[in-house]
C-alpha cells in the first residue's frame, strides 16, 4: 500500500526536527541527514548532488539541503515541510536564550562570559575561514584563489564596504573561472 501524502509529510517534519535538534550546525547535519535520507527518500547520487548544490548556491547551507531532501520526498509541499522542521528547533531555542540573556546585559558574570568567549569565537572564526579557503582551492593552492584573497585583503584594509568587496570577488570569479565544465 502506498503511504498517504500526509504521512510522508509528517515523517519528513519529524526527521528534520530530529536532525536539527541533534546536530550543532549545517555542515554537521549532513552526516546525520545522510543516514536518515539515503536509501529511504533519495539515492546516494541524488544526495551528493543536493550537497553539491547547497555549497554552490548562496544562503544558509542547512536550509538548502533540507529543501532538496524535502523536494525529493514530497515535491513542493515537501520543501516547505522540511523547511519548517529545519527552522523551528534552532530558532525557538535561540529566542529563549536571547530573551533570557537580554535581562542580564549589565550583570558582572556576563562580562566575564563575553571576555572568555571572545578569544574562542575569534579562534572559531579563523578555523572556519581556513576550512572555507581550503575547500575553495580544492586540491592545490590555485593562483586565482590567491589573487582574489590578496585583492580583497587590500580592499578591506582600505575599508572598502564589505558587501562591495564580496560582490566584486564573486563577479571576478565569474570571469576568471570562465569556461569550466562541472561534473
Amino acid at each position: 500500500m502506498k503511504p498517504s501524502k500526509f504521512s510522508v509529510w509528517l515523517n519528513l517534519l519529524w526527521m528534520f526536527l530530529k536532525v536539527n535538534i541533534l546536530s550543532p550546525s549545517g555542515p554537521a547535519s549532513i552526516g546525520l541527514l545522510y543516514k536518515e535520507a539515503v536509501g529511504k527518500i533519495m539515492t546516494e547520487a541524488q544526495f551528493v548532488e543536493a550537497v553539491g548544490f547547497s555549497n554552490v548556491l548562496p544562503g544558509s547551507e542547512a536550509l538548502k539541503l533540507a529543501m532538496f531532501v524535502g523536494f525529493a520526498a514530497g515535491g513542493i509541499p515537501g520543501v516547505f515541510t522540511a523547511l519548517l522542521g529545519a527552522i523551528l528547533p534552532p530558532t525557538v531555542m535561540m529566542l529563549i536564550v536571547a530573551s533570557v540573556l537580554q535581562q542580564f546585559q549589565h550583570a558582572n558574570w556576563l562580562d566575564g562570559f563575553v571576555a572568555g568567549l571572545s578569544p574562542a569565537v575569534a579562534a572559531l572564526i579563523i578555523v572556519v575561514a581556513w576550512e572555507l579557503f581550503r575547500a575553495s582551492t580544492r586540491k592545490k593552492i590555485d593562483r586565482r584563489v590567491v589573487l582574489i584573497a590578496v585583492l580583497s585583503a587590500v580592499a578591506f584594509w582600505f575599508e572598502v564596504p564589505s558587501p562591495l568587496v564580496l560582490l566584486g570577488a564573486g563577479i571576478l570569479g565569474v570571469f576568471i573561472y570562465g569556461r569550466r565544465s562541472y561534473g
Partner: peptide
C-alpha cells in the same frame, strides 16, 4: 560563489 569564498575567508 567560488570567487566569493576566498574573499569571505579574508573578511573572516
Amino acid at each position: 560563489v567560488e570567487g566569493l569564498a576566498p574573499a569571505i575567508s579574508v573578511l573572516m
